[in-house]
């Protein structure tokens, strides 16, 4: 589940602690933009210590490492892998080159840390025109890739256009990224909404992202978690339909039927997958009890 993916600045101990209680699906400890060049070493050490000792619960622990073109990236990967990061967010990803560079250092890091090869994932942050055009190439470059994420600010700068609240300038990038990511069976995470004080604006932006096929949204402020979760909360009728789909498929399986129809429509595997995704969102939104969703999954 990657609905809400919250950035936490890497060199502020007080804010890092907040990651233990803030209600997000993914925590992204930031070593890149949030940390000045002079403090990269301190932030790396702080995050490594925090990952080793603090209990962030069920949240996915991601570290945004520095640009693969800098000497920091390698140190970042080696240290935070050892400290127990679940995944690394690779900034400024452009095609398979960036991915393979990160993946090969990660191979080495996992070996040093005595971790099974391939256990640490990659989330690719795509934020340049070339990155967008090579999104599919990047997404399919390594089995470590778990998700694609859009960085709208840098992209707008690269495109030479201004970043607006309506975000029309991102339309192509968004749909292109969803297509590339979903084609590889990955989660696709939308660019952050940039006004920390405008919760409703964030809700509208997140709702729009969901309508395009995104699985979640980056957040630069804890104030955006609630609107993002609200946007990704399925409607009661979506949930009811998803429950019907799942039970119809279960019945069909029990009765040995190959295909099954519901409300006059044929249900196939993609529909079932979609229904399961809806139920997962419903559970995360507190609409279904956890036991119910596990029993669904167990079928």
């Amino acid at each position: 589940m990657r609905r809400s993916c919250l950035f936490l600045p890497g060199n502020q101990p007080n804010i890092l602690q907040n990651g233990m209680v803030l209600p997000c699906d993914v925590l992204i400890f930031d070593l890149e933009d949030a940390v000045s060049e002079k403090e990269k070493d301190a932030a790396r050490e702080l995050i490594s210590q925090a990952l080793t000792t603090l209990d962030f619960g069920v949240r996915e622990k991601v570290v945004r490492i520095n640009d693969m073109e800098t000497f920091h990236a390698r140190l970042d990967i080696i240290n935070v892998t050892k400290a127990g990061a679940d995944a690394l967010m690779v900034p400024k990803t452009v095609g398979s080159d960036t991915v393979q560079k990160a993946a090969s250092i990660l191979d080495e890091a996992e070996e040093k840390a005595d971790l099974p090869l391939g256990s640490v994932g990659l989330i690719l942050l795509i934020e340049t025109a070339m990155g967008i055009e090579k999104a599919f190439e990047a997404a399919s470059a390594s089995s470590r890739v778990r998700a694609l994420a859009l960085g709208g600010e840098d992209l707008a700068a690269d495109l030479g256009c201004s970043r607006t609240k309506a975000s029309r300038e991102l339309f192509y990038a968004r749909t292109r990224l969803v297509m590339a990511g979903r084609a590889c069976g990955l989660d696709v995470i939308d660019t952050p909404f940039t006004d920390a004080r405008d919760a409703e604006g964030c809700y509208e932006d997140a709702s729009y992202a969901r309508s395009l096929g995104f699985s979640g949204k980056l957040a630069i402020s804890p104030h955006h978690l609630e609107p993002i979760h609200r946007a990704f909360r399925p409607s009661e009728s979506e949930v009811a339909y998803a429950l019907d789909v799942v039970s119809a498929m279960r019945r069909a399986k029990e009765e040995g039927l190959g295909a099954v129809s519901l409300r006059g429509k044929m249900i196939d595997l993609p529909v079932l997958a979609q229904a399961e995704r809806t139920l997962e969102l419903a559970t995360a939104s507190g609409m279904l009890s956890t036991s119910r969703s596990t029993s669904t999954k167990g079928d």
Binding site: N18, V21, L22, P23, P222, H223
Partner: peptide
């Protein structure tokens, strides 16, 4: 407060 912990 704007402090996320206070708000939580």
């Amino acid at each position: 407060t704007r402090d996320p912990i206070g708000l939580l």
